[in-house]
Design a binder for these strands. Sequence first.
DNA 1: TATTGTTATACTCTATAACTATA
DNA 2: TATAGTTATAGAGTATAACAATA
Lengths: 141, 141
Amino acid sequence: MSTEADDRALGDALARMSFEVMSRLTQLAAEEGMSLTQLRVLGVLRDRRPRMAELAKGLGLDRSSVTGLIDRAQSRGLVERVPEEGDGRVVRVALTAEGVLAAQRMTARMAELLADVVAPLPAATRASLRAGLEQAFASRG
Amino acid sequence: MSTEADDRALGDALARMSFEVMSRLTQLAAEEGMSLTQLRVLGVLRDRRPRMAELAKGLGLDRSSVTGLIDRAQSRGLVERVPEEGDGRVVRVALTAEGVLAAQRMTARMAELLADVVAPLPAATRASLRAGLEQAFASRG
DNA sequence: TATTGTTATACTCTATAACTATA
DNA sequence: TATAGTTATAGAGTATAACAATA
């Protein structure tokens, strides 16, 4: 039986966990002199090469915000702007070689940090947590 | 058996979920013309009346950042600064009557929004997810 | 001297509105 | 005209360093 109190307890637990995870990710990004948003950009670009507008949508930001974001990432040599052939208005964003390395580094560290977050749990609980999360967030990236 | 691949899958699922939750909470805060950080402040103050330094530590921010944060919340009439008797250096932060109402409003909406996030899951999965999260994040606030 | 909080400063992130170039 | 991206501008959030008041 699912009561309102249960729902609230679940919501509170979700919120607490999310703040903890965000805190870890922010810290990880900071270690590379980066913001959480820059970390997200690297994550998105690992396996995509989106237009500016697509990137903005994926991050839930205005296009104008992404302009500055990519300006700064580009200054650091992490990404490049690639003009689209066939439509002179379009700009695609891609990781540079250096950006690929940074993304790999962050991905590895991220797995560590987040595994650490749930390490105190017994293995069985970790397994059911993973199963639950994967069902709920499989393809919403 | 817990493998590295399992850990990574769990980490990825955690990160995806956290971004989804943060996105919802940011949206909720925005509906009240507030930032995610202001929402967190309200959440902390629901049942506490911390010193500036304690609040900073709880939020993981520098004291100087919290000065501006509380300045803005105070301008909106949500919080007040209360001088500490016995130690003229200390300032405590407390919700105003209006702040209490805002916090209650947000708490209710938050439960809705986050319940909505996990609504697609079968009840049994929700229950085990909640159990796992509560074990892991019971008192880390 | 040490602690608490604020101020000064600078940078990142973000949005809105106006603009340019291309279609 | 419509679309893609940028620029101009402004405000929030954040940190570091220096400061004032109090202990």
